[in-house]
Every structure is written in structure tokens, then in C-alpha cells.
Nucleic acid binder design. Structure first.
Lengths: 140, 140
DNA sequence: GGCAGATCATTAGACGGCAAACGACCCGAG
DNA sequence: CTCGGGTCGTTTGCCGTCTAATGATCTGCC
């Protein structure tokens, strides 16, 4: 079992569990934070735009938007000019989560990198970015 | 959006896509390789043992075993001494995949780390392992 | 020897992800 | 003006993952 791939996937699992836990504290599921973040940055995006921003497929966003609409975090409204488009708008409840969720996110980042020196942290970011770029070229 | 968490999750997505693609070349789905690897290492493990080895839950293994039994990669057999236990045994088809799958895995590891120097690679492994350990302590 | 509690696998149901098929809508070329 | 091709969102169906509930079996204690 290749060292890096194995270590990376194990790390993913643990980080995912922690992120899930942190989001549940705000009444959210894991992926919902990402969709909200896209709307916090710019409200009224379409599912396709959100999907591109999050690097996921459109159906994924549609499904998440279904659940989040049901739980009152956002509303769907058709674009007035182009009737093919749907725009996702935050509700007050969706907007209200921004501060606590972003705080939880920063807190988690802090905690998992707490045992690294500044140099280690910088090197980790740079090297991982290199791997990411290489991988992206392979998949594209 | 925290730098490391964000970069790590983007990397995960791309690596996952590449791994998926590599496994599909062998007629496998992404997760099935891990289950097979557990049995290549030691055939006849129980679902619970496999789950522990892979750091996933037992139901996950049960579902995967369902599909893999259906596609002829392994067979279920009850333990003779303890009838609560089920043991998963590789078929010839399951055993035959070992070489090509492991080769594809090594190939992917090589490719995504190709642009790193030896030092960078070593540092990446060490630092990521540190983060992993820290995170694991947080979740445990 | 029998019953209560522990141990296993399985089922049920939810979520995040993907690909493929479908349907509604827009727009530009005739 | 129309019609065909392109652009969207949605539906469907699958995989991997989790938690919670269910059911079967073993084991130790009385």
C-alpha cells in the first residue's frame, strides 16, 4: 500500500469526522457548510455556479439544496430573465450561521495544525499544493 | 476558509477521482480495493475484522461484501465454531486482481508525487503524519 | 442447566458524491 | 417565424460512509 496515498486517505477520514462533528454542533451536516459558504460569498447563485465553485457536480448541489430548503436554510427562486435558471437565496437562518460556522472552521484548522512549527506548516501547504497541482493535471 | 483544511479537501477530491479511474480500469469501484487488500493480506477475515482494519464501520463492509459477492470477487461462509461469525473468502477472480491492482496503486503514488524531491516527499509524509496523529487524538 | 448479557452480522435510513437520462427553456440560423 | 442545437435544473440510480435498530448466537454466572 503506497505510503502517501494511504496516509492521505487515513487523514481524510479523521478530518472528515472532526469536521462533521464541528458542523453538527451548528445543526448542519458535513457538506452543507460548503454550500452555505458559496452563498455567503455571493448570494443568489445558481446550482450550476455553486457546483463549479465547490468542484462538485450539479446533481450534488441540487440534492443538498433540497434538504437545506426543507430545513429552512435557503429558498429557491427562478431567475426572472432566464427561466431555465434557478437561484438559491439564503434565509435569515442561513445567514445567521455564518459567524459560528466560520469560527468552528477556523478553530478546527488551528487544532489540527497546532503541533506544527511555522516552517512545517508552510512546507506542508507548499508541498501538498504541488501534489494537488500534479494530480489535477493528471485528471484534467 | 482555512487554508490547510481547504487544500486538503480539494486534494482529496482529485486523488479520489484518480484512484477511482485507476480502479475502474480493473473493473473495480473505488472502495473495493481496500476490502480486497485486507483479504489479500489475510483471507477469511470477518466483516468486523475487515472494518477495523480499514477504519470503517461494519455495515459499510457488509454492503460492500454484498456487491462484491454478487460480482463474484468473494464468497461468504459462516464460521464453523462460532455461528455468529461470517468469514469472507476470496474467489480466484478476487485473487487474480491483486497484481494489476497493486501495480496501478503504486503507479498512481508515483505519478502524484513525481514532482517532489526526496526531501520534500519525506517532509510531506512526516508532517502529514503529525497532523494525522493530532487529529486522531482529537476524535478519539 | 438455563437465563441474562455480551458479541456479531444484517437491515433501515440518511448524507455526500458521481454519471446518465430527461425535460424545460433560450437563441440564432434560415 | 420556426426549428434545431445548446444550456440549464432535475430525476434516477449507484457507491461509500455513518448511526441506530434488529436479530441471531455464544458465554458465563447462578
Amino acid at each position: 500500500m503506497p505510503e502517501f496515498l494511504d496516509l492521505h486517505s487515513r487523514t481524510t477520514k479523521v478530518l472528515r469526522a472532526l469536521a462533521d462533528e464541528a458542523m453538527r454542533a451548528n445543526g448542519l451536516h458535513y457538506g452543507q457548510h460548503h454550500l452555505l459558504a458559496a452563498l455567503w460569498e455571493q448570494d443568489g447563485r445558481t446550482p450550476g455556479e455553486v457546483a463549479a465553485k465547490l468542484h462538485v457536480t450539479t446533481p450534488t448541489v441540487v440534492k443538498m439544496a433540497d434538504r437545506m430548503t426543507a430545513s429552512g436554510l435557503l429558498v429557491r427562486r427562478r431567475d426572472e430573465r432566464d427561466n431555465r435558471l434557478v437561484r438559491l437565496w439564503l434565509t435569515d437562518a442561513g445567514r445567521a450561521l455564518r459567524e459560528p460556522v466560520e469560527a468552528g472552521r477556523r478553530d478546527l484548522e488551528e487544532k489540527v495544525t497546532a503541533e506544527l512549527t511555522d516552517d512545517e506548516r508552510a512546507a506542508l501547504l507548499a508541498t501538498l499544493a504541488k501534489v494537488h497541482a500534479t494530480a489535477e493535471r493528471l485528471v484534467g
